[in-house]
């Protein structure tokens, strides 16, 4: 009795194209009827393409993909790639209720920024209150993911190996090899130890950064909300939590900033647009002064000559005009 379960796995059956069968069928028909050669000479002889052993959306991973570690690694990579501004905090034994309070205050403060933006411009784009979140990270995995992001270039060395299959995702063996180069050092390496939490911003927006800094790490430049303005912020639970949260540094556009640098970024008025406006202003000023300097020589020449001309004209018909004016005044 033949086995009830088909022996061929599904993947194999799908890959076998019906055209394959057809060619065999036509071939047998041809040989039985006439004496034509089996393969037309124009058709190149090539072996069937190798069977893919994985779904196209799940290329093989270097470490087992089903474990939490690998997925966190992937998640952190995407976080690092997609957020140009990341703040790093150390958290020292913060309790769950304190975390809850801190997160609540952060979200409400960010929503206020959104509301202000909407008040100025009802169609405002770039409202990020919902996207900026405080997240506790697994330090070791985060460090490893950061190494992949910094040192693994998926396009590198693709040119010579077109025939082979080359994986370009962050969990591939190539990425692992690029990241495990011990000689490559990151600037952020010393920070990545101990219990860490991060806040990732989808864009470098000093307005939001200012709010986050004033909530999580108040300083004279970024004062915390007053007790009258926001009594919830001065809840003992929130304050106890904030005392145990230390801002260590920031990663802005791939560059590393310390506490002072982070505050400087937060202090830029108007964000990138503000900086652009400042630049345009300085450039304009320089241009105007240059134009003035170049113009001034010819202008002064013109004024001297014109003055001289007027002077001479006056001298020529001096008495007449003097008389005329006298008449007019009379």
């Amino acid at each position: 009795m033949p086995p009830r379960i088909p022996v061929q796995p599904r993947a194999l059956r799908i890959l076998k194209t019906p055209s394959h069968y057809q060619s065999y069928a036509s071939l047998t028909a041809a040989t039985s009827t006439a004496t034509t050669p089996a393969f037309p000479p124009s058709q190149p002889i090539r072996s069937a393409p190798p069977i893919r052993r994985y779904p196209p959306t799940q290329p093989p991973s270097h470490k087992p993909p089903e474990v939490r570690k690998s997925q966190l690694h992937r998640q952190y990579q995407s976080l690092l790639k997609s957020s140009p501004l990341i703040l790093l905090f150390q958290h020292n034994n913060i309790k769950a209720v304190e975390w809850m309070g801190i997160r609540r205050e952060l979200v409400s403060a960010l929503r206020k920024v959104d509301a202000e933006k909407l008040k100025i411009d009802p169609n405002a784009k770039g409202l990020f209150a919902e996207d900026i979140r405080l997240q506790i990270i697994q330090t070791g995995i985060f460090a490893s993911a950061m190494r992949v992001v910094e040192f693994f270039d998926p396009r590198e060395g693709l040119g010579n190996r077109i025939e082979e299959e080359v994986f370009t995702h962050g969990l591939s063996r190539r990425a692992h090899e690029a990241a495990s180069n011990r000689k490559a050092k990151m600037e952020l390496d010393p920070l990545l130890s101990g219990p860490l939490a991060v806040i990732a911003f989808p864009t470098v927006s000093p307005q939001y950064l200012k709010t986050v800094l004033s909530i999580l790490s108040p300083s004279p430049a970024f004062p915390a909300p007053r007790r009258k303005a926001n009594p919830d912020y001065h809840d003992p639970l929130v304050q106890a939590g904030l005392q145990k949260l230390l801002l260590l540094g920031a990663r802005v556009d791939g560059k590393v900033f310390d506490l002072e640098g982070t505050r400087w970024v937060g202090g830029i008025d108007g964000g990138i647009d503000g900086l652009r406006a400042q630049l345009v202003h300085t450039l304009e000023g320089a241009g105007a002064s240059l134009a003035n300097a170049l113009e001034s020589a010819s202008k002064s020449l013109y004024f001297t000559l014109e003055g001289r001309r007027l002077d001479m004209e006056e001298k020529e018909k001096g008495p007449e005009t003097a008389a005329a004016t006298e008449e007019k005044t009379e």
Binding site: Q90, N92, N93, I94, K95, E98, D189, P190, L191, S193, G194, P195, A240, Q243, K244, L246, L248, G249, V256, D258
Partner: peptide, 23 residues
Amino acid sequence: NPFSPRSKSARLVLTLIPSNARA
């Protein structure tokens, strides 16, 4: 100085302080 690799023990000291110590 958080950017010095030698300050690791300083940061770890902070983590050893229990959460209700300040209270």
